[in-house]
Design a protein around this nucleic acid. Structure first.
Length: 593
RNA sequence: GGUUCCGUAGCUCAGUUGGAUAGAGCAACAGCCUUCUAAGCUGUGGGUCGAGCGUUCGAACCGCUCCGGAAUCACCA
């Protein structure tokens, strides 16, 4: 039974009996805030015109009518224009019995819609960093949430595997690498390639300095530096599929992919489809022709193609260079077009940093102007803010970038040290200790990042994230482990807690049941808002409520068998929902810790 | 200058789309381990929701104007 529907139906019947038919927006019902007594609250202000009475009188009148006619309503109170309704204890016990018997509680039926979500989108010239972690966690979580909402989800990764920046690493490796490989150096493939990207920059800067010293301007020097010219030559050779360059490109990208796979696995994210820009960068040119034919685009004297968006408050935007080669926008138009066609998508979500807000604004606008509004309207840019550090922004030039692999290793190691210090690992096998440390370390990192509203710039403080107190992943994991421990001991003691009992619920238990019944709507709203933070807030509240309850009431030592069984069942259901909620965020919960 | 976003406790963040006395955690202070996990629980103090005007029964939330900050406005991706 849907409780919110039950309440709103009951309230509507009473109000309409008193004042006649009313519109949906006049019926404002919300959960009663904690400070007040009651379960659900009717806001009576919108009804005053119909009742022609004061807020207090209206609320009292409705309350009395409901208490007389709705058996589940045991009492009510009125504060200003707010009517607080209290439901019968038996009502909550019955709701609890319902959800305790439902193993698949919280799962939405299939919507039949197909949604593609693209995230990660790395470059193959350097390893992943903290910013990618936010991207990957958001993309993966949102995919999980959309699935829970009944959508058919395709997780996609678009790898940026071509271009001048890739050639820079390749060239540096060729010039200064002495044939070094991941195997020979013991380095992870992506880190090895990243090392040569840095190496290129070093030599490039040195050459610029030399040329400037020799009398060239800064601008000239940047163009004329030999390594830059060579890199550009390499890109031309790559485009011509020169066997040597192409072979090196395949080899080095292969190293990077092996490295990325390790990082993705550690983060617990995966993809259904991987697209490579080397295979899609030519897409979109036919759309340019189409746009020219439709008069949406125009050609300049130098043969380049543009669109004028000044009428929409934006600028003029280039779509095709004078030499006929495409730019980022052209490719993105092409890939968007192809994806909608090939996969019969209903929605397309891009998880991309907010530095590309302008790009996606233009992308959607161009598609619309081309006459593809039905696609444009179903493209969502899930934009997220930068991750900053206590010392300031991450700047690759200043070497303040936090490497993803280093960070993950750090988190796991710290989790292990702290667990050991607290004696939590006593009696664990090495495998168990490692598994728990990984779950806790990663849980801390993931939860810390996901609990923040995606679009906000956030501060990542490693010291604070590893603090296991408060609103953190480990706190929620700990609660889960604690509940599992209770259930284990109950099982060992031979206590049967299979069926839900009908004993009276304590106030704390009613609070838990209320929280549990919110699960479907939480998932649904988070799905629409693309907000893992809502799930996080919910799971944290649930864990906190349980911890308080758990502290005050014995569960195992309850004398009445019926009551004991019910409380164990309640604990089991809380554990189940915590596990599900954390799974939506991509966070594992340990059985014991 | 144009566009987009942000501004809530000392710090990090919520605030479920306009409802009640604005909430958590950290930090500070005071309690609680003979009890199923103290990575925990309970309590105290801490606010001009950047500022102002407007919309209405009611605004942290909607509109306008300022102030402060971020991103972006490349024939880069």
């Amino acid at each position: 039974m849907n409780i919110e529907n039950f309440i709103s139906d009951a309230v509507r019947r009473s109000v309409e009996a008193l004042y006649g038919p009313l519109a949906d927006e006049q019926l404002q019902i919300q959960k009663t805030r904690r400070e007040f007594e009651g379960d659900y609250t009717l806001v009576t202000f919108p009804l005053l015109r119909r009742s022609r009475k004061s807020p207090e009188a209206t609320a009292t009148e409705i309350g009395e009518h409901m208490r007389a006619n709705v058996p589940e309503i045991v009492s009510f109170n009125v504060v200003k224009g707010f009517l607080n309704l209290s439901l019968d204890g038996a009502f909550w016990a019955a709701r609890f019995a319902e959800l305790a018997s439902d193993e698949r509680f919280g799962e939405a039926p299939s919507t039949g819609r197909t949604v593609m979500i693209e995230y990660s989108s790395p470059n193959t010239n350097k390893p992943l960093h903290l910013g990618h972690i936010r991207n990957n966690l958001l993309g993966y979580s949102v995919a999980q949430i959309l699935k829970a909402n009944g959508h058919n989800v395709i997780k996609a990764n678009l790898v940026n595997d071509r271009g001048i920046h890739i050639c820079k690493s390749m060239l540096a490796w060729k010039l200064y690498g002495n044939g070094e490989t991941p195997a020979s150096s013991g380095m992870k493939g992506d880190h090895l390639v990243g090392k040569y990207y840095v190496e290129f920059d070093k030599h490039y800067k040195a050459q610029i300095k030399e040329l400037v010293a020799a009398g060239q301007s800064e601008e000239e020097a940047k163009k004329n530096a030999p390594v830059m010219r060579e890199a550009q030559e390499m890109l031309r050779k790559w485009e011509a599929k020169d066997p040597e360059v192409y072979g090196l490109w395949e080899t080095m990208n292969g190293w990077v992919y092996e490295g990325f796979d390790v990082t993705y696995k550690a983060l617990g994210v995966d993809f259904d489809k991987v697209y490579y820009e080397s295979q899609t960068y030519l897409l979109g040119k036919s759309l340019v022709e189409e746009g020219l034919a439709k008069g949406v685009f125009y050609r300049r004297d130098d043969n380049s193609v543009w669109i004028d968006l000044t009428g929409d408050g934006l600028d003029e935007k280039l779509l095709l260079r004078g030499d006929g080669t495409s730019v980022y926008m052209t490719q993105d138009l092409g890939t968007a077009f192809r994806r909608f066609e090939d996969n019969k998508l209903d929605d397309m979500i891009y998880v991309v940093g907010n530095e590309q807000n302008y790009h996606f604004q233009v992308l959607k606008l161009v598609l619309k102007k081309l006459g593809y509004a039905e696609w444009s309207d179903h493209i969502t840019h899930l934009s997220y803010g930068m991750v900053e550090l206590p010392e300031g922004k991450m700047k690759s030039r200043e070497g303040t970038v936090v490497d993803a692999d280093d960070l993950i290793a750090d988190m796991v190691r710290t989790a292990r040290e702290m667990s050991a210090e607290l004696g939590k690992l006593d009696g664990c096998s090495e495998e168990e200790a490692e598994a728990v440390s990984a779950m806790v370390g990663l849980g801390a990192l993931k939860y810390f990042i996901l609990k923040v509203d995606p679009k906000k710039t956030m501060l990542f403080d490693p010291r604070e994230s590893i603090d296991f107190n408060g609103n953190t992943g480990p706190f929620i994991q700990y609660t889960h482990a604690r509940i599992r421990s209770i259930l284990r001991k109950a099982g060992e003691a031979g206590i049967d807690f299979g069926g839900a009992a009908s004993a009276a619920l304590l106030p704390e238990e009613v609070a838990l049941v209320k929280s549990l019944t919110e699960y479907p709507s939480v998932v649904a709203s988070a799905g629409e808002n693309f907000a893992p933070s809502i799930i996080g807030a919910y799971v944290y509240e649930l864990a906190k409520t349980f911890n308080g309850y758990y502290h005050d009431h014995s569960i195992l030592k309850e004398e009445d068998a019926e009551v004991r069984r019910m409380r164990l069942q309640l604990a089991a259901q809380v554990a189940r929902i915590i596990r599900k909620g954390m799974a939506l965020l991509g966070i594992d919960v340990p059985e014991r810790m």
